[in-house]
Nucleic acid binder design. Sequence first.
DNA 1: GTCCGAACTGGAAGCGCTTCCAAATTGATA
DNA 2: TATCAATTTGGAAGCGCTTCCAGTTCGGAC
Lengths: 338, 338
Amino acid sequence: MPSSAKVNMADVARRAGVSMATASRALSDHPHVAPATRARVLAAAEHLSYVISPEASRLAGGTTGRVAVVVPHISRWFFASLLEGLEAVLRESDLDVLLYHVGDAADRSTFFQRLPARRKVDAVVVLGMPVAEPERERLGLMGVHIVAAGGQVESYPYVSVDDLAAGRQAMDHLLFLGHRRIGMIATADPGQPGWPAVRGRTRAYHEAHADAGIPVDERLIVEVPWGGAPGADAMAQLLGLRKPPTAVYAHSDEVALGAVRTLRRAGLRIPGDVSVVGIDDHPLADLTDLTTVAQPVREQGTLAGRMVLSLLSGEDITDGVTVPTRLVIRGSTGPPRP
Amino acid sequence: MPSSAKVNMADVARRAGVSMATASRALSDHPHVAPATRARVLAAAEHLSYVISPEASRLAGGTTGRVAVVVPHISRWFFASLLEGLEAVLRESDLDVLLYHVGDAADRSTFFQRLPARRKVDAVVVLGMPVAEPERERLGLMGVHIVAAGGQVESYPYVSVDDLAAGRQAMDHLLFLGHRRIGMIATADPGQPGWPAVRGRTRAYHEAHADAGIPVDERLIVEVPWGGAPGADAMAQLLGLRKPPTAVYAHSDEVALGAVRTLRRAGLRIPGDVSVVGIDDHPLADLTDLTTVAQPVREQGTLAGRMVLSLLSGEDITDGVTVPTRLVIRGSTGPPRP
DNA sequence: GTCCGAACTGGAAGCGCTTCCAAATTGATA
DNA sequence: TATCAATTTGGAAGCGCTTCCAGTTCGGAC
């Protein structure tokens, strides 16, 4: 562990032949510093390869220059992509990202109870998870800006897709193809009760049926935890019905891919025997030829980042932003067998 | 943006009827504080819902309590999983994770040139990317501990798999099944020249051939960027040969899945006509029935986290840790058509 | 040639905490 | 009971910066 000689602003000031006050102003780009002086200070700093101490700077009155990002499942493509987009924007503005992973319910309550990011950030971004009232109250204690992304969270500025509309795109596609017995594999995340996306996507199933004048057969609805394996199990359950569906609408691509596996193993053809549609447009959806409803994930992170920037610069944002989704028809859907 | 009343240590000390010095000691768990006094201070802090100012604390002499994580591709399962494991360990010890994404070459040079994490962290973890000599030099300037994970990076303590061995597991499996014409889809990440994993996995191909006494047909080797689509292209190229391979060894599962798509679209059967093996054991490999070489990804992150903890507690770690890989035989490999 | 205000620059007071040093207290030993 | 060491506590000096408040400098208008 090499240790670089610690050089501080006083050294820079001395070398530039100015006072610390001036050095500070020059370095932080304040007005009322003669161009020549500023240049001299900057040169000195450069020469000494000086790096300002964020702690001292902050303590003396600045901001933290950090934003906390709270995310439930880092390793899932959806969340990681949101994060990637967000980080890019924030970094560009020299803001550091402090990562907080709150996977299960225990993590959640710990996080909101202890509020580990308190006093450490200028804003917090909540990625793809609902925030219940008591949690909102705790978050409020932090006294910083809050933005939600990847899921509409009322009472915070958010960026999200319209999950109801997305679900409808998938369902209407199936209905348009002529399917009348459509199964739904809904996801339930025990760590995130009440995730709005789930509600919207589920409602789409019902509304689509209502609009098409088709009664919903409750047996065609299966709710499982998120993931491929659960999706596979759900499909098996649907296949076990005396009258299996001719098409399946899954709440997410990973779940849909699980369903696909079960269908394949059962020797059924896709879409010949059963059509499958997912939501998200995971990169692997393209590879596996899965019809899905695409949502711009990275972009949602980007937009959230910009929101943070605006908020931090004093703008007063309160509204949410909804980005459009788009049906991507691939090879996993087709008309039902006549 | 609600603002919580700012209460500082002086308030706590006053309420507990002690000096700031004592309050500080009590709060940071120092010895030489009477149990009763400590309890009183803690109670006061609790009552005022006091949160220490990390900046002030740090400035006055502590550590930052932060570690920087540098990662090239957040949204890829492999990196996100490493990150997830790492974060869990660090968080448990109340260390915050500062995320730095360096995707392409430009990001890289910016990162190493500006060293944005300088003076902000106690350690930095480099995830799955090589560090060239000049970069290493820059990193050294930070004067903090450095750990590498998800790829063996000489001269830093690291945790990684043995890529050569992993590659051999895949290749030997294919050879054992009787394949003699084996294609390799190697990956090249332009943003990370010289990634050791690539070298090891490529070497495995050659050594396996040598050990089996089979000459390598260079036309069977295709190098493409990482990803499903490139993998698909590579497979198409291999199929275009007058004598296509009977099996394909891909450097990663995503790439392998791309190859699978091409094979499917070409109407070829897997493994009947062509066997495919990947590396990593991506969750979707299970779903798509892909034979692969599994590596414990999350665990590598975990181990790296523990290394950081040890280093931070003064231990003197210099050696790397290599975790084992394991061949997972699924449905995408079988004996060649006789 | 003098005077005035704008543009710069420096002095110094903190920001909220840690820790060295010394003072005070306590218990045990002689 | 007197004495000494060990334990607790408080005082105070910073840690490295920002910024208010004055003082200084300089050019141009009078």
